[in-house]
Amino acid sequence: MQNIRMLQQQVNSLINQARHDIYSISATSDPTAKQVKLQRIWDALTSIQFLNDLLAAHAASSISAANDRQPLNTMPVGQPISPTSANPAVAVPNQTFTIQDLANYDGKNGRPAYVAVGGVVYDVTNNRAWAAATHFGLVSGRDYTQEFASCHAGQQSILATLPVVGRLV
């Protein structure tokens, strides 16, 4: 099941990336930058198609395993591919974290890696810039509102691609 969740996160971040690319294409007049973004959207769509097939295969195999009798009549409607949950950045889950709670999600001994920015808690467990739950000398499980502002000013799109897990209280 964890694989399905990861695939879903990948699809979601690709969709978010494509949205931001479309926005930046509409804002830029630089033809080279446009070309690069268009190529990236094309690549993203290719990846989404591939991941979609993969998810469908997952769903089909789990349904046929659970229900041998009518595998052909059942549509694969597993939650991971529900289109309504496509954008994790829109709805903030109700889970709340204190700064002490957050410190438990330090990415050690199998625990996930969470960080907070601007009162929102994000999951960076499988984020590529957070190898071994560390990022440029920062360890996970803390609030990095200040650090984000100083290093990634004007790059809110970074946050939009991260899965949200809750709120910092």
Binding site: G107, G110, A113, N126, A132, T134, G137
Partner: peptide
Amino acid sequence: AMAPFISYDTTRV
């Protein structure tokens, strides 16, 4: 900024 170079105690159980 790149330390630690290697970690075994990570998000994996």
